[in-house]
Each structure stands twice: as structure tokens, then as C-alpha cells.
Design a protein around this nucleic acid. Structure first.
Lengths: 195, 195
DNA sequence: ATGGTTAGGAACCAATCGGTACAAAACACA
DNA sequence: TGTGTTTTGTACCGATTGGTTCCTAACCAT
């Protein structure tokens, strides 16, 4: 019936997410965004609404791709004990730092700091993601068994804050040995529920 | 000899720091910055260099005011054991969250995420602050005695990441009970070196 | 009072911001 | 090969960006 679009909207959204992830909302100018998505202004405004809606869509995308991934990795769908899965997740983060010196960090964590998010849709999306992550840690801790719910909740929250801290330090360009030290502390946190 | 300035540069810098702390570098437009500092463009460019140099000066200011404050609080100049001082610091952060729902967070932490900082002067300033904080935690842990240096270093780094994580969550608008749970985990981290 | 010197404020600057309008280009179907 | 429909690229929009210029107002020393 008509001319087909020359780009894949999913791919373009991935690239948009990548840019917002890297530099945040305000720092990403529309020009940079278009360059990253490899489309021109006309195509952009025909296929999407505006910059902000693409940002919100990026948050959703991060939620359904990355967060869902780690949540299911932490969930009982994964193998090993809850403790092993938690440490496995941290090891993956440390690995990313070690390999390519991950300066990207965690989009969720970055967006929590980004003031562009405050108030409005973005904030509730972010809060939801934080809770999803907290509950995933909680599940993994609780799976370790022999621990009352209150203690498991506390531990999960401690691990959550350690996780965000590690991602902040990662973006700050920490050494890989520092990451390993942080992980050893998480390991220690888990001793509490293991014994 | 001449007309005296009508504003206190120190006060103005404080207000500038407050704005950058709150919204970051890019999100703070020059107009907002001038409004915050309560001076006009002419005075600004006569007294300071440009926006970026004021940002860098804000980082220095945060270092010499806030970071130095917490470092000396953690240092042996404070009272109580190292453990008590560390927990006291965390309690203060939790209190700020509880009282006025601190959505400001930690300027250092925010700036680490802010991409405006990457590369150049800002980054090295930030790294220096991170190390200062890490060493302060290390001192406080080591003061607890009966712990070898390697273990103290690990613990200090775990506490550092927990600290940043807590500040991220604070800016995200966490509940005060969540903050208390995080602190209880730090307490547990310190059991390792106490016994 | 007056002259020298500096601060303050507004006008102005090019560049860029996010966003719109529209014409040309590319396809599907006839 | 048209013809209708949609995408694409570009020119353009007013508003705002960080920054400069320059004139006037205000002050101190004489």
C-alpha cells in the first residue's frame, strides 16, 4: 500500500535506551538521540511521540529486558541455592567491570539520580523497578530457608543497597579488586541467613 | 577605591553548590543558577569564570565542607568506637530521610552518576573524594582493633558501597524503615570485625 | 564635590534546544 | 506505468542555551 519504513523500531528503541542509559535524559540532546537511533527527525516524530515518551519507553524497555532478566536469574527458575544466585549476580557485575571497565552502570540506578525523572510517570516506573529488584533479592534470600521473613527482608534490603552502591562505584570507574571486596561483604551478609 | 560588591561570594557559591547538588550540571541552566545565587549575569561573569568552573568549585566546596566533615566525624577525633561512629553516620543519613524525606542525596554520589563529570578535572576530584571516604571508613574499622589490614580494607569497601547505595535509595525516596533495615545490615557487617 | 574604579544590569550574540511543516522519494497495488 | 499512500529528509520555527559587551550606578579616596 505504501512505502515501508527503513528502520526497525525495536532496534531504534534499543539504541535510544543505550544513549539515555549512558548520558541520562537532559544530557542527551535530540540531535544525539537521532544520531544514536540512526534515523532522521522526520522518521522520529512519525514513529514516536517526542523525546520524553521515548525516554519513558526506554525505562519500560529496561524493565522488561534487563530487570526482568536479573529478577528471573535470582528467582527459583535459576539453578543453585538463593545464596549462590545472589553471589552469581554480583560476580557478573564485577566481571563487567573487570572486562571492559563498565562505565555504563545500571540504567535504573542512574535514572534514580537523574533529576529528569522526579515527579511524573518516570518516578513511579523507577519505584516499581526498585521494588521488583528488592523482592527478587528477598525471594532468593528466603529460598535459603531457615530464616524468618523479617530477617530475610532486612537482608534483602541490605543487599539491594550494596548492589546499587556497587553500580555507582562501577560507573565511577572503580578497580576490579574493589568490586571483589564489596562482593566479599555481601557474602558475609549472607552468612547471617546461612547458619 | 571603588564600588564594593553587593553579595557574598561564599554565600553565592553555597547556593550554587546547592543547585548543582540538587539537579546536576546539565539540568541546571545558567538562568536557574543565577536565580539560585541571587545575582545577575554581570556580577556572575565578573566574579567567576563560567558555569563549569563554578561547578568544579562546587565540587571542591563539597569536598572541603561535607566530605571533610564526615571524614573527621569518622576519624578518631570523634568520640566512641570506630563501630559506633560508622553506625552514627548511617543513623544521621537515615534521620535525614526520616525527617524531611531527603531527596537531595549525596552530591558526590550524584555527581559520580552525572555524565557531565566524566573525563577532565571533575572526574579526578570525584575519585579523590571517593578515596577519602573509603580511607575514613577504613580508619574507623581499623580503630576497632583486632583485625588485620586486609580484612579492614574489605569491610571498609563493603560499607562504602552500602553507603552509596543508601544515598541512592534516599534520593529515590525510600521509606525510613527501609533505611533502618539497610543500617542493620551494616551493623552486621561490623560484627565480623568486632568479634 | 569630584574623579577614578569597579559592580550591576540590560541589550545583544551566535548556537543549539525540541518540535513542526512540507515536499520529494520510495514503495504496493492496480 | 501510473496512482495512491506512507516514509524520509530538510528547511524552518520560536524559545532558550551559555556567554559578551557596554553603559550606568555606586562607592572610596582625595
Amino acid at each position: 500500500m505504501a512505502r515501508p519504513r527503513e528502520f526497525d523500531p525495536e532496534e531504534a528503541m534499543d539504541k535510544a535506551m543505550g544513549l539515555f542509559w549512558d548520558v541520562g535524559y537532559e544530557e542527551a540532546s535530540l540531535t544525539e538521540l537521532l544520531a544514536a537511533m540512526e534515523i532522521t527527525k522526520g522518521s522520529f516524530y512519525k514513529a514516536f511521540q517526542d523525546k520524553q515518551s521515548v525516554y519513558l519507553a526506554s525505562l519500560d524497555r529496561y524493565n522488561s529486558k534487563v530487570i526482568s532478566g536479573t529478577v528471573s536469574y535470582l528467582g527459583d527458575s535459576g539453578q543453585g541455592t538463593g545464596r549462590e544466585r545472589i553471589l552469581g549476580l554480583f560476580a557478573m557485575v564485577a566481571d563487567a567491570v573487570k572486562r571492559d571497565g563498565d562505565r555504563l552502570g545500571c540504567f535504573l540506578c542512574n535514572a534514580l539520580i537523574d533529576k529528569a525523572a522526579e515527579g511524573g510517570e518516570a518516578e513511579s516506573k523507577l519505584q516499581a523497578m526498585v521494588h521488583r529488584l528488592e523482592n527478587a533479592f528477598f525471594q532468593a534470600v528466603a529460598d535459603e530457608g531457615s530464616v524468618d521473613e523479617k530477617e530475610a527482608r532486612e537482608t534483602a534490603r541490605g543487599i539491594l543497597s550494596a548492589y546499587f552502591g556497587l553500580r555507582v562505584l562501577g560507573r565511577a570507574g572503580l578497580s576490579s579488586e574493589m568490586a571483589l571486596d564489596c562482593i566479599r561483604q555481601v557474602e558475609w551478609l549472607l552468612y547471617r541467613v546461612k547458619t
